[in-house]
Amino acid sequence: MAEENRAKGEVGLAGEDDGRIHDLKDWVQVKFHEQVEELKRPEDTQLYKAFFRVGRIDEPRNRALHTLNNLFLHIHPTKVNRDAVRYSYTWGMGGISFYLFLVLFFTGVMLMFYYHPSEIQAYRDILDIQNSVPFGLQLRNIHRWAAHLMIIAVWLHMFRVFLTGSYKRPRQFNWCIGVMLLVFTMLLSFTGYLLPDDQLGFWAVTVGTNMARATPLIGHEGPFGPQLGMTAYNDVRFALLGGSIVGSNALLRAYIWHCIALPAMISVFFGVHFWRVRKDGGISGPSPVMLESEMHE
């Protein structure tokens, strides 16, 4: 029976009729070949389809669905202008900024496992991260340099968007969101500067927050501050530091701003920024040049 089946080229069920296995050796052999054939096309397996929702056969519809049906990729359109993927136009700086943010998020969470935001512990934790934690030094280095690189990337992104006039109608509002992201990026970096609780961070934050004393109306050395009852113990600098000096409370506040409040805020602005890029018609170009003679008054 089994011989006949195979001769006819039928797949499977060798040594098997009425649901029972008669010839175990044949059965295993056939099933094994079947399995090997299946694994050669992983895209047809249940597992693959459950994972990706779309078959892998390379046809336009599936290419589109790959982007559309994926949570992480759906911020992209399914198709873009063929010239828009050129590096020369975008410089890739917006995407690189976001990638660096992800790197910072990941390394930042890792660092948080080893760090206590208290004056007694913070500096020792940094020494510990550098000297005892496996790859801790590299972890801290990556976090630090990614932060610097992100600021450079954001500045250059802004420069590119300006040079290509991409802030013009209908993208004015998204430019403003971008300015906010620039400010948040620099504030994130600045709040992180204090966290090692070393001389560098301490004096940089001292210099930085001393400016807050001079804020008009809400700083005790600013114009009209004293007239409104501002002192060193109730003005905006006091609110930022949680005290009148850069001390334990300032460390805790910088930590909360750096690890929770600012990342949460910047994430919301990221969402709006990306969403508006799509709603405003995708990336701005390279679009066909417009001529002065075509300009309406």
Partner: peptide, 22 residues
């Protein structure tokens, strides 16, 4: 970018000064 970061992180260490001292 990852390669740049890794090379940078392996060759140059993030600065750490003395403990903060007012």
């Amino acid at each position: 970018v990852t390669v740049i970061l890794l090379v940078w992180a392996l060759t140059i260490n993030a600065p750490l000064e003395e403990l903060a001292n007012a």
